[in-house]
Design a protein around this nucleic acid. Structure first.
Lengths: 345, 345
DNA sequence: TGTTGGCACTCTGGTCGGATGACTGCTAGC
DNA sequence: GCTAGCAGTCATCCGACCAGAGTGCCAACA
């Protein structure tokens, strides 16, 4: 990827750094002042013209300095060596998260809060995937003849509940019996396996339980296959989208908000992003959604003891401090792994 | 409260209506044109001066028209007769909510979505209070020797989970036994009663179960007493705070966001608001939080079959269409009651 | 060939003054 | 108690103007 000679690369990096910290298009003079390249501003100008031709930077208008394009940020990110270490301040903030988290949900909520405060961007935290967890217990609650609530409890502490679709009314005792049968069968199994097992049990069960057991099998299957249907997303610090002052047009801000209010979209975004690595960065138009063309996503995964994992990330403007954000996201991900270990152990 | 003569009252109402719909300070000329009072603008001016003296309206600057104060809105709201009927469009939107809600959480999430779309304000929906629900089942899950997860399932379909505080490690079989004992004792009881019963059972239980049962009693008690600790709030349409364009200063918007990201605050706000009636309106400085001095809250309660209830409302600018908002909030509340009935029945 | 200094040009952003228009408060008269 | 008219105030809009920042290009130089 080294299509740029050393000086051009240095200039591009300097432009990115300057623009990220100052927020204003950066010109050749400004650049020669702050860098010690030993060349004049005219030379830098020539290089900048070349960088613009190559698509790494752009000019908002004729007499303005240059601004990095998505491609420019991409080059910058790819050229990063190892990511920064989190600062002491960051560490302290994250440690505060470790203490006092009650349950899994609480922990994930805190995580999204810490992540957003650390980065000053909107934070996205996705709960550990259910389909790779093991079932601890399945509770069936008879709310009415046509409504039975299934509560799936995973070894990660995650609790998932959903109503069963029932054709025929069921009695409270049948629900009790089904509950017993199901728990005998599935305890400790992974979700994929559990669904099959329950389906098998249903086939051989007394008639009055069959429909109920089928519904349970169905609901477990849905937990595995439905992309995002059962996944929980914890959003934090969405204020930052507007408070940061990165966007000029209100319309943009509105679009971003509307987009991330959709869980499914957020999940897909994180999943897409993480396909390219871990941690991963998607910049502007690299994101699958045109509404987010002015945004970047920095994401990472975290693992739980049981082998199931989740993901987390932040959504901010393309004009973000990528090294710092990467460091923060990674630090939070690893702290979350530790906290999860403590919570369950 | 009728300190205003008929004409002054009519003028005040006209000012409120005009300002709400147009968003600009309204002057005497404009008013005489749109109203048919049979008096001249000079007369209206005199009345407006009186209204300003009385504190109902104010002038942003000398040569501008008048804007209602919080007190002015208050008069307007108090003087409203019965609230409007929801429009056909509103009804249709709400009906869409009734269909296809999976479980309680899903239903409440949809409710907040519908409410915000209907009113174009931020919507707040609080889950049915646990302390007035009846317990259907208590599940104890042994995640590790020091961590046991308690899952409380109420007859409303609400599921509440929390980690138990344990002094001593417990074995998986003890958890099983405790689970059995607890469910024998509490099924069908209200939460207040259940806590006492479990505490009683704990006192007479074998030593190895006592700590565990005490912890369960404690966690149930917390469900009753902790203001908001176990209460869930579903926020929806928070975009509208910024998208509406009601606030000039970005700082204000930021404050509002930060305030409502705190569950506890939202809960307290709704509770305070509903102390003054149902449905209830709190305008600007009537709200307990200075940060929300530019906002109003319109709230109502909803009841579930079992006698426990929750509350919902919207948060918008003081410059809101109160009749329309009141109608929408009430319509959503009653639709939610129906939907809850269907979900559980 | 790459680098440099210089120059003309362009475009934005801020400031200033004047014209405009929407109000109000006041007063004299009906 | 109501009205018409008048003088005064203030925000807003608009065009003009200027300073500043930055560019592209060109000729000269190593």
């Amino acid at each position: 990827m080294n299509i740029l000679d050393d000086r051009k690369a240095a200039i591009l990096k300097a432009i990115v750094r300057d623009y990220v910290s100052e927020g204003e298009p950066v010109g050749s003079k400004r650049l020669t002042d702050s860098m010690k390249l030993g060349v004049s501003s005219a030379t830098v100008r020539a290089d900048m013209a070349a960088l613009e031709d190559a698509g790494f930077i752009a000019q908002p208008h004729t007499s303005a300095g240059r601004v990095p394009t998505d491609l420019g940020y991409r080059y910058f990110v790819d050229a990063l060596g190892q990511t920064e270490e989190p600062t002491a301040e960051q560490r302290a903030a994250i440690e505060a998260l470790l203490l006092g988290a009650g349950d899994l949900e609480d922990l994930l909520r805190r995580t999204s809060s810490v992540l957003s405060r650390l980065t000053r961007f909107a934070a996205l935290v996705v709960a550990p995937r259910l389909d790779r967890s093991r079932l601890r217990h399945v509770e069936l609650v008879h709310l009415g003849p046509h409504s039975v609530l299934a509560v799936l409890i995973a070894d990660t502490g995650r609790v998932d509940k959903r109503m069963l679709d029932l054709d025929k009314p069921v009695s409270e005792t049948d629900v009790h019996r089904a509950r017993h049968v199901v728990n005998e069968a599935v305890s400790g199994l992974g979700l994929r396996h559990a669904a099959d097992v329950v389906a098998g049990v249903a086939a051989g069960a007394p008639e009055e339980l069959e429909g109920l057991l089928d519904a349970v099998a169905g609901t477990i299957t849905r937990g595995v296959t439905d992309a995002g249907a059962g996944d929980q997303v914890f959003l934090g610090g969405t204020v930052n989208i507007v408070a940061g002052g990165y966007f000029e047009r209100l319309e943009q801000v509105k679009q971003v908000y509307e987009t991330i209010e959709e869980q499914v979209v957020v999940l897909k975004m994180l999943r897409d992003t993480l396909e390219s690595g871990d941690p991963a960065v998607k910049i502007g138009t690299e994101l699958p959604l045109v509404e987010l063309a002015a945004c970047s996503v920095v994401a990472a995964t975290y693992e739980t003891g049981g082998g199931s994992g989740g993901s987390l990330g932040v959504l901010g403007p393309t004009r973000m401090d990528y090294p710092r954000t990467l460091a923060a996201v990674q630090a939070v991900a690893s702290s979350l792994e530790r906290a999860l270990g403590e919570l369950v152990g």
